[in-house]
Design a protein around this nucleic acid. Structure first.
Length: 352
DNA sequence: ATGTGCGCACACG
DNA sequence: CGTGTGCGCACAT
């Protein structure tokens, strides 16, 4: 519950900073959240990191420094306005209603966003660089490399404490492949997360040989887009996720499964995925759809508390209307994901 | 001191 | 070109 609270706070803060034309960087975000809600920068930072991992917030490198973006607001480059406007206007109320319970964003309303289409090809641009800059050197002075007086040093501590945030993201970069575990093993930092990033990076690098309809294919592309973002999260402390063999695992994150399938490229993947579907938590489901390129809609799944079992029970109409998400993405989500997952799952069952 | 508003020069497509 | 961004500064608290 505090989770959604933080989501709201942080998203709100990012929006505020943006509208104020101030860079939404770690320092400012922490500061503002503390001032507004009294949350400790450390905590804020940890929560921010979670949001980054589930792609509610995007960490980007813009003009040489790190910025955080409200994923729901990242606009697709050049889009036909009319169509967007129409859809938006028509569904805004519904969307708002849906988001209210969880992340009522007041101002940031999901309106102008339109991230249905495959978020893949188009936007591989600005987010691209967050890598090499973000890690290592970025750990504390990413930008002060040369120019820029940057007077504010007060929050350096907070920033430092949050080095983990960067460190976790770092392995995602093509350059900084350092599978090192999270430097500050605090709560919320699972040891395995770093590994996932690396693996995922590998996955993203390999040419996509998956059918376009494959959920994994989507996810993969999405990761590429969000360079600085790290999947992982739901990694369980005990299981270091050794690729290839996990037939005795109980609770496997969709990422692990997806990633695994990418690495193996086999068809066994789906069965495992669907099998685990029963074990997916609400967070798993939301993360899955985020990864699949539907971060905005993932929120709706979360709000409606759709876990793996619920997902299996969902019907077309549920997805199209029950979630109060826009029709376009809803159709894609149903046809390409829900349906596929259900089908594979039940096929699997009949075979048994 | 700390938060806010914003002109204008960038970055980017 | 248009659009989004955020530095750097003036202003508010």
């Amino acid at each position: 519950m505090s989770e959604s609270k933080y989501r709201e706070w942080i998203l709100d803060t990012i929006d505020s900073l943006r509208s104020r034309k101030a860079r939404p960087d770690l320092e400012r975000i922490c500061r503002m959240v503390r001032r507004r809600h009294g949350s400790e920068p450390d905590r804020t930072c940890a929560e921010l990191e979670k949001l980054i991992q589930e792609q509610t917030v995007l960490k980007v490198n813009y003009k040489g420094s790190i910025s955080y973006r409200n994923a729901a607001k990242v606009q697709r480059r050049s889009r036909k306005k009319d169509d967007v406007a129409l859809t938006t206007a028509a569904r805004r109320s519904a969307v708002e209603e849906a988001s209210h319970s969880d992340l009522s964003n007041g101002d940031s309303a999901f309106g102008p966003v339109d991230q249905d289409e495959e978020d893949l090809e188009a936007d591989t641009s600005m987010a691209m660089d967050t890598d090499s800059n973000a890690d290592e050197e970025g750990a504390d002075e990413s930008r002060d490399g040369q120019d820029r007086p940057s007077p504010a040093r007060t929050y350096e501590d907070a920033a430092m404490n949050c080095a983990s945030a960067r460190a976790v993201s770092a392995p995602c970069s093509p350059s900084g492949n350092r599978p090192g575990p999270c430097p500050s093993p605090g709560p919320g930092c699972s040891p395995g997360s770093g590994l996932d990033c690396v693996s995922f990076q590998k996955a993203a690098e390999r040419p996509s040989s998956l059918p376009p309809s494959s959920p994994r294919a989507l996810a993969h592309n999405d990761w590429a887009y969000h360079s600085a973002v790290c999947p992982a999260e739901r990694q369980h402390p005990g299981m270091q996720r050794d690729k290839g063999t996990f037939k005795n695992k109980i609770d496997i994150s969709p990422f692990t499964a997806a990633e695994d399938s990418l690495l193996n490229g086999s068809s066994v993947k789906t069965e495992k995925m669907s099998q685990n579907l029963l074990q997916w938590t609400v967070a798993d489901v939301a993360s899955y759809f985020s990864a699949a390129g539907f971060p905005e809609q993932a929120v709706a799944f979360r709000t409606q508390e759709i876990d793996g079992k619920s997902l299996l029970l969902m019907q077309r109409s549920d997805v199209l209307t029950g979630l109060s998400i826009r029709l376009g993405p809803a159709l894609k989500i149903y046809e390409r994901h829900v349906k596929v997952l259900q089908r594979t799952h039940f096929l699997e069952y009949e075979d048994l």
